[in-house]
């Protein structure tokens, strides 16, 4: 192994360690007996899981997270897929600029999005804050991912399959449900899972638009502000496991590579 190669390997190892070790350490400390987060670990326990689940408000927050994630996932998948299919039939220039417009929210800092939506809801339209405002707000930054993933799939879509189906006697709706949808469905599912992972993990936009309720991330924020105890690790790992699971599954299904 040459010097060149050793430097590269060392660098890559350090980068991976830097990216992954905080998450690995987190999982480790979920099972640590001591209430202090420090080495060396004295013993192992599942106590913190029960402590987390017993906290007042945990299950409401968990339930709210599931509701928000499910609604955001469903709505952004349907409208994002429709948009992507529609874009794939437009001419390249129109599709390109519309795509750039619809994915613009990804560039906005979440803080800006959160406070702008808060001001909009409370000062202008005057709706009470709650899960519905959170769901509406999440659509803005989750639908771009569905559009991107499904559009990428449509680039290699063979439109002759739709023509064939029509030629063989299918109505436009039959062709859509029997041909287009089954062929594209893995990408749609992938996009949906990524959208759900983003929604589940979001803190900033949720924080400003939820009013008095909690989802898991805002619940965790409350715990953080009140002083750290290891049951917070459990909540963190729960969020991480759910969003990670959805993402890995999503990328697997769409065979996304970078």
């Amino acid at each position: 192994m040459g010097l060149d190669r050793m430097i590269w390997t060392g660098f890559a190892t350090l980068t991976v360690l830097f990216m992954m070790s905080p998450l690995a350490v987190l999982v480790l400390f979920c099972f640590s007996e001591s209430p202090l987060l420090s080495f060396p670990i004295q013993g192992w326990t599942l106590h913190w899981f029960f402590a987390a689940f017993d906290r007042p408000g945990f299950f409401t927050a968990f339930q709210n997270s599931l509701i928000v994630t499910a609604c955001v996932g469903a709505v952004s998948t349907v409208i994002g897929t429709l948009a992507a299919l529609s874009l794939s039939r437009m001419n390249r220039r129109a599709a390109g600029s519309l795509m750039a417009l619809l994915t613009l929210p990804l560039m906005a800092p979440p803080l800006l999005l959160g406070i702008a939506l808060l001001t909009f809801y409370t000062s202008w339209v005057d709706v009470p804050l709650g899960l519905h405002t959170v769901i509406a707000s999440h659509l803005v930054f989750t639908q771009p991912f569905v559009i991107l993933v499904v559009s990428a799939r449509m680039l290699s879509f063979d439109f002759a399959t739709i023509d064939s189906a029509r030629d063989l006697g299918a109505s436009p709706l039959q062709a859509f449900f029997q041909i287009t949808l089954p062929i594209v469905s893995p990408s749609i599912l992938g996009g949906a899972l990524i959208a759900m992972a983003l929604s589940l993990d979001d803190f900033l936009v949720t924080f400003f638009t939820i009013g008095g309720n909690n989802t898991l991330p805002t619940f965790m924020w409350g715990m953080l502000r009140r002083g750290v105890d290891p049951s917070i690790n459990v909540v963190a790992v729960l969020i991480m496991a759910l969003s990670l699971g959805a993402t890995v599954l999503g990328f697997r299904i769409t065979r996304y590579r970078g």
Binding site: S38, A236, M240
Partner: peptide, 25 residues
């Protein structure tokens, strides 16, 4: 890298706090 992308925003900040703290990891 993809795995690292979705670790949770608050979780990551909080982990660095516990890693770097004076009684930290």
């Amino acid at each position: 890298t993809l795995l690292a992308l979705f670790g949770g925003y608050l979780t990551k900040i909080y982990m660095w706090k516990t890693i770097l703290g004076s009684a930290g990891i």
